[in-house]
Each structure stands twice: as C-alpha cells, then as structure tokens.
C-alpha cells in the first residue's frame, strides 16, 4: 500500500518538476514586470501631480482591498467579454504583475518620502535636473528603506502565484491537487508541495531578514 504510493509518487516526478518550473517562471516574469511597473508608479505617486497620485492611490487601494483569487477570476473571465482572449498563464502574469506593482508602488513611495527634504533641496541647489535628483540623490537613499520589504514582497508574490492554480494553470499547487486525486495521501503530497515552495521562498526570507537586520543595527535588542 505504502509502497504503491511511493511508486505512484515517483511516477509523478516529471509532473512535479514541471509544476515547480511553472511556479518559478510565472513568479519570475511577474516579479520583473511588477518591479519595473511598481517603481514607475511609486515615483509618479510621489511626483508633483496631485491628480495622478490620487488615481494611483485609488487603484492601489482597490487591489489591496480585494482577494487575489477574485482579481484572477475577474481578469480570466471578464477580459474575454471585452474581446481579449487569455490563456491561464497570461491571465496569471497580468494578475500577479498588477498585484506586485501595487504593493511595490507603496513600498517605493514610502522609501522616497523617507528621504529628508534637505537632500532634495541640496540637489536642487546644485542644479540637478528632476530625473538626476531622483536617480542620483533620492533613489539611492530610498533603497535602504525599500530593499527589505521589497524582498519580502517577492516571497508573497511567489506564494500568491499558487492561487493561479484555481484557473487551471498547472503550477506546483495544481500538480499537488492532481496527484492527490490518484494517490490519496494528502499529508505526504502537500508536504512535498510545501517543500518545493520552501526551497524557493526560504532563501528570500533569509535575505529579507538579513537586510532588515542590517538596517536596524542601530536598534538595540532587548535581551535582559
């Protein structure tokens, strides 16, 4: 019985690898696109235009206020009504990119706001252009604040990619779901699925912690 399960599980090995690959590819594409978009939105959010800033703020709130599962359903089932046919992968990339961009936008905006106004004034006084000020003075300082939560956000993104399995994309979670139909040992199957995610996410969690500790080194830790 147990032996049969193991044989059956071992037979699912290529499927599992494909699932893990799908999870990684999906996350990676969305991560890159989401970071680019998020930085752009974050800079616009703190830029001069009030209107633009509040439009972005409202969109971010809409995305932060609804479950990701609902966002995926909306994109996957409603965009076709506007004549845009999507496969599950593209829908997943759009949904994840949008989600990541919104969270990263707020992280970047917070980082930019943390740079003392004296820095901007000094850059202004030395005649740097708007883009130079951002590129040379503000962003490098903001990165100190941005980096730890940014890495944390990547972990969330990888985990959220599991939700795309709900529209039938064969990622790691979906593979677990498929396998458990044949091998009725949910504990073992989803333990292995968990291990897959752990291998991808844990190094990032460690990195985020390390960055955080480096930033918070000035804070004494309570030990007594």
């Amino acid at each position: 019985m147990m032996w049969q399960q193991f044989v059956s599980l071992a037979g699912s090995y290529p499927l599992a690898l494909r699932g893990l690959g799908m999870t990684v590819v999906l996350s990676l594409i969305s991560l890159v696109l989401g970071t680019l978009l998020g930085f752009g939105l974050g800079i616009l959010r703190t830029g001069g235009s009030r209107l633009l800033s509040s439009v972005i703020g409202a969109w971010v709130d809409l995305i932060r206020g609804t479950p990701f599962l609902v966002q995926i359903f909306l994109i996957f089932f409603i965009l076709p009504e506007f004549g845009i046919e999507l496969d599950a992968f593209t829908a997943g990339v759009i949904a994840l990119t949008n989600l990541a961009a919104c969270f990263i936008c707020e992280i970047v905006a917070a980082g930019i706001r943390s740079v003392p106004s004296g820095q901007v004034e000094a850059a202004l006084a030395s005649g740097l252009s708007r883009w130079q000020r951002m590129r040379q003075v503000v962003l490098p300082q903001a990165m100190r604040i941005v980096l730890p939560p940014l890495v944390g956000q990547y972990v969330l993104l990888i985990k959220d990619s599991s939700v795309v399995s709900a529209i039938g994309l064969t990622d790691l979670t979906r593979v677990g779901w498929l396998v458990v139909q044949r091998v009725p040992n949910g504990l073992l199957v989803f333990f292995l699925v968990g291990v897959g995610y752990f291998i991808v996410c844990y190094p990032l969690i460690m990195l985020a912690r390390r960055l955080e500790r480096r930033m918070g080194a000035a804070h004494g830790e309570v030990q007594l």
């Binding site: 972990v155 990888i158 985990k159 959220d160 990619s161 599991s162 939700v163 399995s165 790691l172 979670t173 677990g176 779901w177 458990v180 009725p184 949910g186 504990l187 199957v189 989803f190 333990f191 699925v193 968990g194 995610y197 752990f198 996410c201 844990y202 969690i205």
Partner: peptide, 13 residues
C-alpha cells in the same frame, strides 16, 4: 515560506 493554498490543501486532503 509556503502558500496558504498549499497549507489549506494539506489540511483538507
């Protein structure tokens, strides 16, 4: 380090 959905399935199955 693991998604809630996988945890949910872990308990459910």
């Amino acid at each position: 380090a693991t998604p809630l959905l996988a945890q949910l399935y872990f308990l459910y199955f």
